[in-house]
Simulated assay, not measured.
Amino acid sequence: MGDHALPGSPPVPLTLRKSARARRISLRISQLDGRVTLTYPNGVAESDALNFARQKESWIRQHLSDRPDPSVVQFGQHIPVEGTQRRIVRATGRRVLLQADQISVPEGAEARRLARFLKELARDRLTGACDDYAAMLGRAYASISIRDTRSRWGSCSSEGGLMFSWRLILAPPDVLHYVAAHEVAHLAEMNHSPAFWAQVERLFGDYKEQRRWLRDNGAQLHQFRFDAPAS
């Protein structure tokens, strides 16, 4: 892999990847973090791959400009929790409280407190879903970890370790459950073969709508920033 950039304002970082399996030069822009990856075959020169990217520069910049702007969470703002928009308000007590149409957060490091609450809620929901699907599958997983991943919503290691993005708690519950079923299914099929997708459907049911929702809306779950206090 190599790192380059399209010059301009602003520069566009490019990740170059040479692949023995690639038959042509291709561009991919991540739905999650906007990363631009340029893949090219072994027989193609790096300079030719970069020229290809330069020819596609207007398309790349247009696609990136359509992405939602980052937004630091703050009081008065709405944020989706389990797919329902909730207004962030000041709490009268000392703990974060999730209600039907709002989420109350104590003042003082509000963004970090809210993130901590959402991560724990995600862990609770994902653990429950994975326990149910693992029991249906008849396979045990080794562990569950919750992270703020940018490149994927979940993963399953060969040792049975499940990993999920905590931002799934912002998505509708059926989307979270689909991702849980997807990763648990890897305990039986460590691939994306027809047999794997059959396991996902056996565990979850028809998953096409939830998979489409993530493709169309997943990037919006990453627009919320929790690295600064609310005002």
Rank of each mutant, 00 (worst) to 15 (best):
W213D: 01
I60W: 08
L27P: 02
P13H: 12
M136Q: 08
H182Q: 00
D66I: 11
L187A: 04
K208L: 14
S47P: 10
I169Y: 05
V175A: 04
S58D: 13
M163A: 11
L221R: 08
S47T: 12
K208A: 05
R61D: 04
V81P: 00
R24K: 12
S145Q: 14
V179F: 05
Q62C: 15
E82Y: 06
S193D: 11
G128C: 11
P7M: 10
S104Y: 02
F204N: 07
S158R: 08
G160T: 00
W59F: 10
G108K: 02
H186R: 05
G76A: 02
R152A: 05
C156N: 11
T149Q: 08
G2K: 14
A185W: 04
V36D: 11
I88L: 01
G128N: 15
A198M: 13
L14P: 10
R94L: 15
S19R: 13
A129G: 03
T149S: 11
T127M: 15
R215K: 03
I25F: 06
R147C: 04
L176E: 07
L118Q: 05
A45N: 00
L121A: 10
N42P: 07
D3S: 15
W197L: 07
A129L: 00
R17V: 11
P172T: 05
A195M: 13
T39G: 11
A109R: 01
V179D: 02
L32W: 09
V73Y: 03
S104Q: 05
D69P: 09
W59L: 06
L176I: 06
A22H: 03
A122C: 06
P229S: 00
M190H: 15
P173E: 03
S143D: 09
R61C: 12
R24F: 04
L162S: 00
W166V: 10
R28K: 14
H177W: 02
R116T: 11
S58G: 14
A171F: 10
G218I: 01
G218R: 04
R94N: 12
V44E: 02
Q99C: 00
Q223C: 01
A20G: 00
S165K: 07
R61S: 08
H177M: 06
R23N: 12
H182L: 07
E209R: 06
A195C: 10
D174S: 11
S193Q: 14
